[in-house]
Amino acid sequence: MLNMNHVTVTYNDRPTLIDFDLHMKQGEIVSLVGESGSGKTTAIRALFGLLPHEGYVSDGDILFEGESLLSKSEDEMARLRGSRISMIFQDSGAMINPIRRIGAQFVEYIRKHEKISKKEAYRKGVAMLEAMRLPDGDNIMRSYGFQLSGGMRQRVGIAMAMTFRPDLLLADEPTSALDVTTQAQIVRQMMDLNKKTGTSIIIVTHNLGVAAYMSDRILVMQNGRIVEQGDREQILKHPQQEYTQKLLAAIPTMEGEAYV
């Protein structure tokens, strides 16, 4: 479904993502892990066509369902984004306009991609929110972003992203700003969606535990390159690269050593 062939992204003549190669099947969950500045976010931004002005794909190609995304016009990309490829961000609160109600924004978004009446769009929004197990979707449609908790805002973000049952969901640190219990809820819901709708997911996270729990494949990144990839067993139990081993050793665990 998705082929990223040797993609290199350059910012101001400096390559930030080097020779990134990723091939995904429908329904697969892949996670990108690594420390800040390792190029994980750049990789999915390139795919979503949202690189900042000074950044561009200088080498390689990105094929989605066999079509190159790089040769698409801005209009074509805009149609694709939000319907067939969606993205959720670290803080969905930041993407919600604080002075407009959630409902107005949700309806606008739905009507951008589908020719239906406002009423129908509203009903569809409420149904999506309730599918995300948000109690009282009607009430949430009438709320402003700041009236919701971080976990609820994130669920609104996922509900919006999933409205058109995209083929591919990109999640950039979707749980990093959340508490552990909320994080577990969000992770569970993303996996439910994956099972029910067959949406493929690329998740960027620095939490190796989340990555291991969710994904079929883990890509470990450092300095813009993929240093190692494999399934959970390979990465956690038999890491080959020194960097992966160091990364694993630095994570405090419940079973690990105590210093005091």
Binding site: R133, V180, T181, T182, Q183, A184, Q185, V187, R188, N207, L208, G209, V210, A212, Y213, R232, L236, L248, I251, T253, M254, E255, G256
Partner: peptide
């Protein structure tokens, strides 16, 4: 509940993650 919701690299991956809804 707090402990059940933690993702860890040495958790039991065959069990679903628990958390209060």
């Amino acid at each position: 509940a707090l402990r059940g919701a933690i993702f860890s690299i040495d958790m039991d991956f065959s069990k679903p993650i628990e958390s209060i809804e």
